[in-house]
Amino acid sequence: MVSKLADTHIQKTDFTAKRQPILPYNKKTDRPLFMVLVILAFLATMTLLATSSGHRAAEGWRSNLQGKLTVQIKPGQKKSDTEFLDTAQKAKSLLKEFAPVEFVTILPPEYSQSLLEPWLGNVPIPDDIPLPILLDVKLYDGQLFDTKKVMIAFADAGIRVDINDHSQWDKQIKRTTSAARLLSYLALGLIIIASIAASIFATRAGLTSQRRLMDVLHQIGAPPAYTARLLSTRFAISGFKAGGIGALSALVISVLVGSMFSVSDGFSYFLPGLHLSMTDIFLVVAVPIVMALIIIIVSWRTVIKILYTEIYP
């Protein structure tokens, strides 16, 4: 019918109309969501970077501690420097008899003296202060060291030693990093919940402000999926942009803070420094993508639910 009508009336028209988006941009409802998403993306990225950096630092500490132990020959048995060094040599030979030991280094007396510097200052240590001799023991990778067995061997040889296999430190680092990881997962969970809540709220606000458009789309026979796609695509694009801005801001701030407070060897005082790795870059890229995915799923479900309960009979 329309074709017939059109055929009789069509004249060549200088038609240059550009297609407008069906769903208009609504700054009033779009901007608050955008800002909330930027903040959430920023927090999520900061959490991820801090977790990743902390995990890396802890692993570094642990790898330094694992496979090493320190044997301290107690100074009470000191008779003379020569005798004491002989005892150290005996201890070294004894240690080398155990399979996991790769090599043993007798640390010079200056090393023991340097350990006292934080308390005594950089002054000559009087001879009558008894200092232990320290042996640095390196184990073969993945080998377990039976401290009790070695202690018994030393006792049999008449050498009084303390063995520090750093297991306490290792356990503490492990516990602390596990707790930190758990807390960051909790924070990420809360950020995801906040993103979902913000998406639901924004979708509802968007539907309310575009109610007439929704009614018209329903009136002309647009399937609910079409309407849902209009809204969820809009929100997902907005979420991706906001996620990108938030993630990049977090990255820039992390780098700045890391470089400002870095003292040496990548450490910021006693805390691990914020260093970027490929994993961090991946996390920064993933944040806006994940945010857009969350928003598209949540807003889609919200629109479909509202359309079926409020518009479709």
Partner: peptide
């Protein structure tokens, strides 16, 4: 597509 319906719509609007 717009190019497919442009003439129909313009014709109807004239009508």
């Amino acid at each position: 597509k717009q190019e497919d319906y442009k003439e129909d719509v313009l014709g109807l609007l004239k009508w």
